[in-house]
Simulated assay, not measured.
Amino acid sequence: MVEMITLDGYPLTGPTRDGVWKRLGELEGWFDSPDPKRINAPRTRGDGNFQTEINYESRLITFNGRVVSKNHDYLHEAAGILAALPGRGGKQFVVDGHGPVQWTTVDPRGKVAITFPTDTRMEFQIPLEAIDPFKYGEWRKFSASVSSDVAIFHRGNADAIPYVVVSGSMPGGYTLSHAGSSVVVTEPLVSGSPHTVDYRKRRLYKGGAPVRGGLSTASYARVEPGQRDTFSITPNTTGTATATMTLYDTYI
């Protein structure tokens, strides 16, 4: 399969108007897992440390490449494009050609370093940082209703975080359940004013605006990779609604 790597939609591999782009060496930091991190809590009267949650540091990516252009002017056009690509961050970095297409959001980690070995050849290095160290692939949607639960899954290798939109009418609120955990929403659901439950931010939104309170209990369970689970919505009192969960294939 042909490799295609893009930053903010611009190809860093393959032919463009400005020249032929090629990756040099390894795609540093992409295929590795990021460094784990945890808060050490020493056992003052025992051996070792207490068990604490393990998270991940930012993913540090370095792309080394080369551009060969048909003339000197085109080469400097390519250099101008390259210098501006990372911008002020929040750019999508996409890797295709090495298994499933995967992407992450990156910020500049340092300057774009450019050298010109000849009048028609440029070599460069782009240091990037993904504050969210996870990589994402395809997204899929699953809809559950009061009378119909739905099987959910994703094809990544790390736990995926759900994003749920609920529309309908439930004056006493509702309960979303999967993986043996539940989010109980007490905020009334009104027709024409859908709710969003963001499991990443652990927040409830109504009509796009954040809601203070509105939840009685909330266990924001993630969806494990490689297995199916069941997602359901039930009214706390009466009513009917549809809950649509969005999941991305999630990789570490």
Rank of each mutant, 00 (worst) to 15 (best):
V185G: 06
K206E: 11
R203T: 12
F63A: 03
P34L: 06
Y248L: 14
V164D: 04
R88A: 05
K91E: 09
M122C: 04
R38V: 03
T16E: 01
T217P: 07
S219D: 12
K91Y: 04
F116Q: 05
Q92N: 12
Y174K: 06
Y74H: 03
K91L: 03
L189H: 09
H76V: 02
H178W: 12
S232N: 11
S143Q: 08
P235A: 10
R45V: 14
P100S: 10
T250D: 06
E3Y: 00
H154C: 04
G14D: 11
T44H: 05
V164P: 06
G180M: 07
S177C: 04
G180D: 12
R228F: 08
I152Y: 12
R212N: 05
E77L: 05
G65L: 01
T217Q: 15
W103Q: 05
V164S: 06
S182F: 04
T115P: 00
G46L: 05
T196F: 03
S33W: 14
T237Q: 12
G97K: 00
F142H: 08
R17Q: 01
S193W: 06
V106W: 04
F153H: 08
M4A: 09
G214E: 15
G25D: 12
L24P: 02
F50V: 15
L215T: 07
Q227K: 15
I152M: 02
S182A: 02
P171Y: 13
P194R: 00
G29M: 10
V166D: 06
R212E: 09
L82I: 01
L75K: 12
G48A: 05
W103E: 08
V20A: 05
H76K: 06
A83T: 13
Y205L: 15
W30R: 00
Y220A: 04
M245P: 10
I126P: 07
A84P: 00
L128H: 02
D107M: 03
I131W: 15
T196A: 11
W139G: 04
R59W: 10
K135G: 00
I161D: 14
P42S: 05
S145L: 07
A113K: 15
I252V: 05
E26K: 06
F134R: 11
G14V: 14
N71Y: 09
Y10I: 01
A130F: 02
G137C: 08
T246L: 15
L247M: 07
Y251F: 15
R200N: 10
A218H: 10
I39E: 14
P15A: 05
P100A: 10
A209W: 07
S216E: 15
